[in-house]
């Protein structure tokens, strides 16, 4: 156990090794490790963000789906209502048209009846005048009784 100059040289060697590690070994390794830590942290954050976005998107999509379903059912209800309205309207207009046709037909019939009755009356009056004139022809001078005949004819009309 003798102390000698070896101690000094070992101390010098030690300080050189320390200097080397401080300068060339530790910083590079530390940088690599810290960069990797950053990368991992970023990756985890990105994953988390993706998960949140997915959640949000699925929520939004279900909302959209719900809204679409609601809209669709509204459209169906509206369409049904519209259809029944149209049917109702058609029924209404058909009824009105029918009534109009019936009314026209009735008026036509009335007119026909009236004109038939008129012509019948004419014919009856003619026949009556003819008959009367035939009867009177023998005893009555047509010229004398013309006034009378005219008055009968007017009465029959």
């Amino acid at each position: 156990m003798n102390i000698n100059f070896t101690l000094v040289s070992q101390a010098i060697a030690f300080s050189i090794f320390i200097w080397f590690t401080v300068k060339f070994v530790w910083p590079y390794l530390l940088r690599a490790i810290e960069e990797r830590q950053q990368k991992i942290a970023d990756g985890l954050a990105a994953g988390e963000r993706g998960r949140k976005e997915l959640e949000l998107a699925s929520q939004r999509s279900s909302e959209v789906l719900k809204e679409a379903k609601q809209r669709a059912s509204e459209v169906v209800i509206q369409a049904e209502k519209r259809a029944s309205d149209i049917i109702e309207e058609a029924k209404q207009s058909a009824r009105v048209e029918g009534e109009k046709i019936i009314a026209g037909a009735k008026a036509e019939i009335q007119h026909e009846i009236f004109s038939a009755r008129e012509s019948l009356r004419q014919q009856v009056a003619g026949l009556a005048v003819q008959g009367a004139s035939k009867i009177l022809h023998r005893e009555v001078n047509a010229k004398v009784h013309a006034d009378l005949l005219a008055s009968i004819e007017a009465e029959l009309k």
Binding site: T6, L7, V8, S9, Q10, A13, F14, S15
Partner: peptide
């Protein structure tokens, strides 16, 4: 010598 060199450093 080695251990003293280290410890004294």
């Amino acid at each position: 010598n080695t251990t003293f060199a280290l410890a004294l450093s």
